[in-house]
Simulated assay, not measured.
Amino acid sequence: MHADHHDIVYPSAIPFVLLHISAVAAVWTGVSAASLALCGAFYLLRMFAVTAGYHRYFSHRAFATSRAFQFVLACLAQSNAQKSVLWWASKHRHHHRHADTPEDVHSPRHTGFLYSHVGWIFARCHDTADLSSVPDLTRYPELRWLHTHENAPAFALAAMCLAFGGWQGLVVGFVWSTILVWHATFCINSLAHVSGTRAYVTGDDSRNNWLLAIATMGEGWHNNHHAFQSSARQGFRWWQVDLTYYLLRALAFAGIVRGLKQPPLSVVRGEQRLGAKVVHRTAEQLAARFSAERIAQSLRAACSERELAALCQALHDAAATVFHPNLPSRAALMAEARTLYARTPSLEEIVERAQQMLFAAVRQRLGAVQA
């Protein structure tokens, strides 16, 4: 586990654990068709609040709406007990700035699957929100009030379930649906960065997972989302079911939301050149596929001291034009890149940068003076 991620705040995890345990109370309350219907209805409504509210609206501003409906979305989202919309948006924006790097708040690559799924939520370093990253949201006093009273909507919904559905309404309708929404949401942080396909080069481990897309009303098209984050539509292709987007279209037709952002055709087709940050991250991933230490060891075994000195100087002066049987060629890096990544017009740039990184790492291990 990352050095900064060992300080699990166990007291804050107690309500989380207790809610899971309370789900077993259905053994005593019983489970009726009506309570199951309530659970299903609340799952869909609150999952939509996560996908359309927490994520596409508050985190990415993928559409616009009135201040009144913004507040409704915020209340519905926070009825899931996933902290405030300010906290959620702050952490999610940080995730996108550092996706699958050591600075990411929940990357399976660096912190492990379980920590990325749920453990990070209870870490002391993630307990507070960086409100400076959400100035577009903090200007609303009602959202700041919800931030201060983050669990008020969840308690209100739980009380309504108890009042109108009795103990079955509370346990099955509220508790079960809350737990299901929790883990469906958490799977996007964990499973959607581990299992699935990658249609786009994004510089991270995001993947498209059709099963998660069904369970999360469209969020499983996660690689699509990382390719164009501000899109209100995450199922870019007609066959990629995105129930959240369909509902947003219905709300737009009714005049409740407006300005649904769409991915440009060049992005959908994979024809848009990648940004410098994505190229750099992808090149790092590609270079890491070749062991600089093993290459350096093979060069030491094959070359004399004079040859090594000349090779180090050549690597320093013009890494991309240096050839040696023990150094991976540009063609070898290109072949590896084509097996790893989707089609992109930036592939040559990625390979060139990866070769520079790899040769610099080899030169460092051979004791050369850094540029």
Rank of each mutant, 00 (worst) to 15 (best):
A13D: 00
V24H: 08
V24N: 07
G30I: 03
A34G: 06
A34L: 07
L38N: 06
C39E: 08
C39P: 08
R56G: 06
H60P: 08
R61E: 10
V72N: 12
L73K: 09
Q78W: 08
W88E: 03
H95G: 13
H96Y: 07
H96W: 04
R97T: 11
V118H: 01
D127L: 10
S133C: 09
P135Y: 11
W145F: 15
H147D: 15
T148I: 09
P153M: 06
A154W: 06
A158G: 11
A159M: 10
V172Q: 00
V181R: 01
N189K: 05
A199Q: 11
A199L: 10
G203V: 04
D204N: 12
D205W: 10
L211G: 03
G218R: 03
N223D: 01
A232C: 13
F236A: 00
R237V: 04
W239P: 00
T244R: 03
Y246Q: 15
L251S: 05
R258T: 15
Q262R: 15
V267E: 08
V268G: 08
T282W: 02
A287Y: 04
I295Y: 07
E305R: 14
R306T: 13
D317S: 15
T321E: 15
V322S: 11
H324Q: 11
M334I: 13
T344F: 09
L358H: 00
V362D: 06
Q364E: 15
R365F: 07
